[in-house]
Design a protein around this nucleic acid. Structure first.
Length: 103
DNA sequence: GGGGTGACCCAGT
DNA sequence: TACTGGGCCACCC
């Protein structure tokens, strides 16, 4: 799988996250590991930073539920609008979603 | 080719 | 609760 295809796969998966649910960078990397053989939370993070526009990037948070630096306000607002449970500074990880669950 | 960096993660202190 | 160290991997000097 070429790097640009990996990017496509990440964005595709992020688009499938249902409103009101979230996924961590690590979970995304994990879910794609089967299909691509590669898994790196850091890589997913950098992909979202560079190509995240155009997909519901606010549904992807870090493992602690923290929102992306510099976009906390924006992400919080969108999550609240979707009814995503919030806890403390970010999202409530009890709302985390997995691809298996959505099929 | 070598080295620093980052929207990360986990275990240990 | 907060910090640290090691692992991770594409990108950019």
């Amino acid at each position: 799988m070429r790097p640009d295809e990996y990017v496509e796969a990440v964005l595709e998966l992020v688009e499938r996250i249902p409103p009101g649910r979230v996924m961590s960078y690590g979970a995304v990397a994990d879910a794609l590991a089967d299909r691509s053989g590669r898994a790196s939370a850091r890589l997913v993070g950098s992909i979202m930073a560079r190509h995240g526009g155009g997909v519901p990037w606010h549904r992807v948070v870090n493992a602690a539920g923290r929102l992306p630096p510099g976009h906390e306000r924006e992400a919080r607002e969108r999550l609240r609008a979707e009814g995503t449970p919030l806890r403390g500074p970010g999202a409530d990880m009890r709302a985390s979603w997995s691809p298996e669950e959505g099929m």
